[in-house]
Design a protein around this nucleic acid. Sequence first.
DNA 1: TCAATATGACATCATTGTTGTCATGTCTGA
DNA 2: TCAGACATGACAACAATGATGTCATATTGA
Lengths: 143, 143
Amino acid sequence: MLYDLLRPVRPLALNSARVVETSLRSDDLTVGMRAVLEVLAEQGPLTVPVIGDRLDLARQGIQRHVNDLIDRGLAEQRPNPAHRRSVLIATTPAGAALFERIRAGELARLGTMAAECGSAEIATALRVLAALHRDIRAEAGRS
Amino acid sequence: MLYDLLRPVRPLALNSARVVETSLRSDDLTVGMRAVLEVLAEQGPLTVPVIGDRLDLARQGIQRHVNDLIDRGLAEQRPNPAHRRSVLIATTPAGAALFERIRAGELARLGTMAAECGSAEIATALRVLAALHRDIRAEAGRS
DNA sequence: TCAATATGACATCATTGTTGTCATGTCTGA
DNA sequence: TCAGACATGACAACAATGATGTCATATTGA
């Protein structure tokens, strides 16, 4: 039942954010900034609107996070060969290193969780979640 | 990989909220009020702190939603046999009927989604998500 | 009984998602 | 080529909501 699958999604998102946020406190980062950093670390330099697409958020909110990251020296603007006005945003070496450290900590924590679930089950869960997300995302797009 | 399973959770929560919120507009409800209504509809009259436990939220925030529901005639206070001060919150007939209508619409929408996933896969996804939520929730509790 | 805790009520704040505007750069089709 | 449509950065304002603190009162357990 998809309804029952959807029910724990928001509490899970909340508690995940709480755990992540606790670790981020000492680095003076917010979960929003961390999310942008993650996209940049994994997908390379992107424009602000593209980051918004990746995270399903409006470009205006992303711009705030990007500005905050630049203020902290964790991200920087780069000229965009394909567009004079829309610059590319990239992680600085400090930003990339910081995110690597953050992710390592998160992976360590996750390593002990859901121990009774095999990798096949987790893979199945991932596929189901992706399918549901795809269709809900499409539904949300009809606005 | 649990990390990859966790990644789409927040976008999914966001897009779900967007879809639900759109339907709630016409009823002058917020997703927070809907969440409280859902708990009351499924679990019967509860006190405000208990609703907070169910939703992993602080009682103060729940109190706001409950007050909003009472203002709209969708919930009401009932005397609590076990506690003179801490009253029970229950749906009114109007609140129960409204939530039933809301849920029917949501189920209808969900009916067409993730069509390629069988019920066994969805059940597996639910188990994995529940296990992950259990452990992340415990981790979040250590604060 | 008395100290610790729980609860309602109220207040404040920070984060963040949403929306709107404007000037300017870019692109597409006539 | 050019004009209109669209994209983008910058800036602003707002709403929902999660987090936190306080205080008076009720409850509970030692």
